[in-house]
Write a protein that binds this DNA or RNA. Structure first.
Length: 632
DNA sequence: TTTAGGG
DNA sequence: CCCTAAA
């Protein structure tokens, strides 16, 4: 087979030199990337990070008050069937305040019932984009509302003279769809447009077809084909993009595939990272281990940032809880006419991340306790997440419904579990997180009357049990823990056996078993959950075919950038795989095909493109043929 | 990080 | 879709 292919290739190479010679990756990469201003990126990133976190922090800390919104503050009240009220305040006092707060007020004026439009949540680290000459960083923020209208917010900052570009992606896949926001979509757009009409921002609306101009490269065979540059978005083809430009230089822009890549990278790394508290004995003997403990490994700024992230998560999740209390709209999201069954949980305990601790034998028990305490503290100061484990597999797609995740009212004690996870993406080399759990006490899962709204997994999200929190960090307990639980208690229906979250403090000697770093067996696979299957639509196939026709099979990254740039869930590997299956599909009889039928004309194009391009996939350029022949 | 290919 | 060697 290989031999055949090689011979074939040579024949074509003699006849048809590749029109687009596939340059060495290093060269193409040089052409595509421009990573020249890391500093600027980071600086800008931090600025927006501060803004976003500040925003949420303040929103969270002030949400219990009832002051009237003033300039720079916005207050949104939500009336959930007249029963529940929740107020959010958004105050921005960082440098991007004018832009963000104006946007809030401009939108909120029309979104009287819409919960906080602005909840930008910082998520992504800076990244340079590949096919632009600009220096820019990517920042992915997250707004439940903005996400749902898939808005790209581009803020240009007059102060930035460098022309840096930033990405603010409000469409990241971590936020869940809030049905109410969906309902308000048109209103939201109108509001934003209104805001734009005030002259503050310049709108640029794009639809599924990107307005981005790509460098079109056509093979002679396809020279006459119209290059539609169809760019498949992350969600539906018809979703709208709003791009707001302020006057000048700094721009926020989305590049979701990076975040996805990062996510996957993190996911891949997680199992091999540990909390390692390896200290010398004398360190343990320090009387003030609080200041000299694990935390000291962190840069102070980073530590504060983590803390804010924790608060931000808490705020975000709190709002999620509230959202999911809105039943009418939730049904709408479920896309079902029938009323969804209620799934109710009583969580007895959380799994906790493994803490791998190395201590010398000569360490005292007291120092051991302190070191463990410090490790736990550090976790709590980082971003604390709750993981959902269904039948031993971790559910990572937050957008999946409980039904889709296999969480139903029929689930039993063995099927569902929750984990506490800390993710400290840039932990010091001295500290590594192993996101794996030792303690496993599956929560109860109780059947419920089917008239109530679904309680999403975030029902129990981010809820370190109060004793756990309290015993570890008074600050968090004071500022976050009680607040969270108050909200949850409010959200939870007062059903008879629906006990408050009674959680076993997992911090005991048995849970935090000492495991040598070298011994990590078995359990880590728990966290590599297969992605949700998302079959390619016909339009996606068409875009893929078009891109491959133009670029050739094998330049999958280019294909991705060309046609699936904004489809975070389609990696270039996915595209390569899809092409493989397409070629296979096109070569079998229609009766043998499965899934959504691909139009025959597309399959014909697949075959044609495959036939045309496969010669050019030769690993060796034509010029090396002599040597390879000589070797044979 | 991308490509290529097997599972 | 996943995994991973190889580049």
């Amino acid at each position: 087979m290989v031999l055949k292919k090689k011979i074939h290739n040579r024949g074509f190479h003699d006849l048809l030199a590749p029109v687009i010679p596939k340059a060495p990756r290093s060269f193409r990469r040089r052409c595509l990337r421009n990573k020249s201003s890391e500093d600027g990126e980071i600086c800008a990133f931090e600025l927006l990070a501060a803004a976003a976190d500040k925003l949420l922090q303040e929103q969270e800390s002030e949400s219990s008050t009832s002051s009237i919104g003033s300039k720079g503050k916005e207050q949104v009240s939500i009336d959930d069937e007249g029963a529940k009220h929740e107020q959010f305040e958004v105050k921005v006092d960082v440098e991007v305040k004018p832009v963000i707060s104006d946007l809030v007020s401009g939108a909120e004026s029309e979104l009287d019932a819409l919960p906080t439009i602005l909840d930008p949540r910082l998520k992504e680290l800076p990244h340079s984009e590949d096919d632009s000459g600009s220096d820019h960083a990517s920042i992915v923020t997250n707004s439940d509302f903005i996400r749902n209208i898939n808005t790209k917010l581009i803020i240009e900052d007059n102060e930035d003279k460098k022309g840096n570009m930033y990405d603010a992606n409000f469409g990241d896949d971590r936020a869940e769809m809030h049905p109410e926001a969906v309902e308000k979509q048109s209103v939201g757009l109108t509001s934003l447009k209104t805001y734009v009409s005030k002259g503050c921002l310049k709108p640029c609306v794009h639809t599924g077809v990107s307005n981005k101009s790509y460098t079109s490269v056509h093979a002679p065979f396809y020279k006459d084909r119209v290059n539609v540059n169809k760019n498949i978005r992350d969600n539906d083809d018809d979703e709208k993009y709003l791009r707001y430009n302020n006057r000048n230089n700094t721009r926020l822009r989305a590049f979701g595939s990076r975040s996805r890549a990062r996510f996957r990278r993190m996911r891949k790394m997680m199992p091999s990272r540990y909390w390692k508290v390896a200290r010398k004995l004398k360190d343990y003997e320090l009387p003030n281990s609080n200041s000299g403990g694990v935390k000291s490994f962190y840069h102070k700024r980073k530590h504060i940032y983590m803390r804010e992230r924790f608060q931000a998560d808490a705020a975000n999740k709190r709002r999620k809880l509230f959202y999911h209390g809105s039943k009418n709209s939730y049904i709408k999201e479920a896309g079902s006419e029938s009323i969804p069954n209620l799934v109710k949980f009583s969580i007895k305990s959380f799994k906790v991340p493994d803490l791998y601790v190395e201590v010398p034998e000569t360490a005292t028990v007291g120092s051991l306790k302190r070191s463990v305490m410090e490790a736990v503290k550090t976790i709590l100061h980082g971003t604390l997440h709750v993981g959902v484990v269904v039948q031993g597999k971790k559910v990572r797609d937050d957008n999946r419904t409980l039904q889709q995740s296999g969480i139903s009212q029929n689930c039993n004690l063995e099927t569902l579990g929750f984990t506490l996870e800390s993710s400290l993406p840039e932990a010091s080399p001295f500290l590594a997180v192993k996101e794996e759990t030792l303690s496993c006490n599956p929560p109860q899962c109780l059947s419920r009357d089917p008239t109530s709204p679904i309680i999403d997994e975030c029902f129990s999200n981010s809820s370190p049990d109060p004793p756990f929190v309290a015993s570890l960090d008074n600050h968090i307990e004071k500022n976050e823990g009680n607040d969270i639980f108050a909200t949850e208690a409010k959200t939870q229906e007062p059903v008879e056996d629906s006990k408050a979250l009674v959680l076993v403090p997992p911090l005991d000697a048995e849970v935090l078993a000492m495991v040598p770093l070298s011994e990590n067996s078995t359990k880590r696979y728990e966290f590599s959950q297969r992605r949700t299957r998302r079959p390619f639509s016909v339009s996606e196939v068409e875009a893929l075919v078009e891109a491959v026709e133009t670029l050739g099979a094998g330049r999958w990254r280019d294909v991705k950038m060309r046609a699936f740039r904004d489809a975070d869930h389609r990696t270039y590997v996915d595209l390569k795989d899809k092409w493989k299956t397409l070629v296979h599909t096109a070569s079998i009889s229609p009766q043998q095909r499965r899934g959504e039928p691909v139009p025959q004309n597309l399959l014909d194009r697949v075959l044609a493109a495959h036939a045309y391009w496969s010669p050019h996939q030769a690993k060796q350029p034509a010029k090396t043929q002599k040597t390879s022949e000589a070797q044979m």
